[in-house]
């Protein structure tokens, strides 16, 4: 227990942990401020303004259509052969006023019920990024500066030391993620309250939001574990960060291009972001536009493939087992030099 407390203290004492956390929270705060500035509450005044804008837009279109019809009739009368006008100039008609809807001209507004689910994705992404780099640095810097060797001279049980470090990291991340998520819920609720609407919330909606938030925290914990394991494998922070860049640039970017060129069916199913997105949204439906599943009405539908959060959880479990297993194995077997 003393080792766990010490590692937790070491984690929070590190400047990198502090600055990365502050950076992550700052980005989240900027998003909240951005949402607050760019959204407005919709009231009679906004509706009146939107109606005025819609009327103005309709009038402009009527004017333009009349001008074009006049041009068309003039061209026909002059016997000019203009193929961009219809045979009958009367077909050039302005849109009806009701086709131009007032709500198109409403300012952006933050509807908590419909928007918050999507806003949990940036929260999870930032927490995952903070978890990954802090996790990698926490063990990587210990290896590269000799701190791990010092610690092993005090506590010669290697697996205990590594797993305690990981436990301290995940505890620290949880201690950040839980209040950060609560603050995210709270601040976006306030944004919706002041710059949108909080109407229509049901217990089911709340439950769905909480579960998505929970999956976001789990995603951050997975990312931290993978970063930690990779840096421990390479005994350097750069191993994890380099590995991440390699996976993103070569493994994902390159693979996406290759899959597209090879016209692989449901190519996105081979890409990691699909599974991350599926984890957060519960399901991602991939479509193969080169296929045709005819319906009984004769309509041609694209073939689909659903990637669910269950697939994602399987992938994450296998990933953690592989990376962490390898890190533990090398910790046990490799000499400390």
């Amino acid at each position: 227990m003393s080792l766990f407390r010490t590692e937790l203290r070491r984690l929070t004492k590190r400047r990198f942990t502090r600055w990365t956390t502050v950076g992550g929270l700052l980005v989240l705060a900027l998003v909240v401020v951005g949402l607050f500035i760019t959204n407005q509450k919709i009231g009679p005044e906004q509706w009146a303004e939107a109606k005025r804008s819609a009327d103005q837009s309709h009038a402009e279109q009527v004017r333009w259509v009349e001008q074009e019809r006049a041009n068309c009739e003039r061209a026909k009368a002059a016997g000019e052969n203009v193929d961009y006008y219809p045979a009958d100039c009367a077909e050039i008609a302005p849109p009806a006023r009701e086709d131009i809807r007032d709500e198109w001209y409403l300012p952006s507004t933050f509807i908590f019920k419909s928007s918050f689910q999507d806003m949990l994705i940036p929260l999870a992404a930032i927490l995952a990024m903070v978890g990954f780099v802090v996790g990698a640095s926490f063990v990587g810097a210990e290896w590269s500066t000799g701190g791990m060797m010092n610690l092993l001279l005090w506590r010669p049980k290697r697996l205990t030391v590594l797993l305690t470090k990981l436990g301290a990291l995940l505890t620290g991340l949880l201690a950040l993620a839980l209040p950060a998520s609560a603050a995210w819920f709270g601040s976006l609720w306030l944004v919706a309250n002041w710059r949108g609407s909080t109407e229509g919330m049901t217990s089911g909606t709340w439950q769905s939001f909480l579960l998505t938030g929970l999956r976001g925290i789990v995603l951050a914990l997975v990312a931290a574990t993978v970063g930690f394991a990779l840096a421990s494998l390479g005994r350097h922070t750069a191993m994890a960060l380099g590995g991440a860049v390699a996976v993103i640039v070569v493994g994902q970017g390159g693979l996406a291009i290759l899959l597209d060129m090879a016209q692989v069916r449901f190519g996105e199913a081979w890409l990691l972001p699909t599974y991350v997105y599926a984890w957060m949204t519960k399901t991602v439906t991939l479509e193969d536009w080169r296929s045709c599943n005819a319906s009984y009405t004769g309509e041609c539908n694209a073939a689909t493939l659903d990637i669910t959060w269950h697939h994602s959880s399987l992938l994450f479990t296998v990933g953690i087992a592989l990376f962490l297993g390898a890190a533990l194995w090398t910790m046990r077997r490799r000499d400390v030099t």
């Binding site: 400047r15 210990e142 000799g146 005090w154």
Partner: peptide
């Protein structure tokens, strides 16, 4: 040693462990 810690922090963490 971890370069950004003070000597007291370094020893205090080892003492804790």
């Amino acid at each position: 040693f971890f370069p950004h810690f003070t000597a007291r922090d370094t020893l205090s963490l080892l003492a804790g462990a």
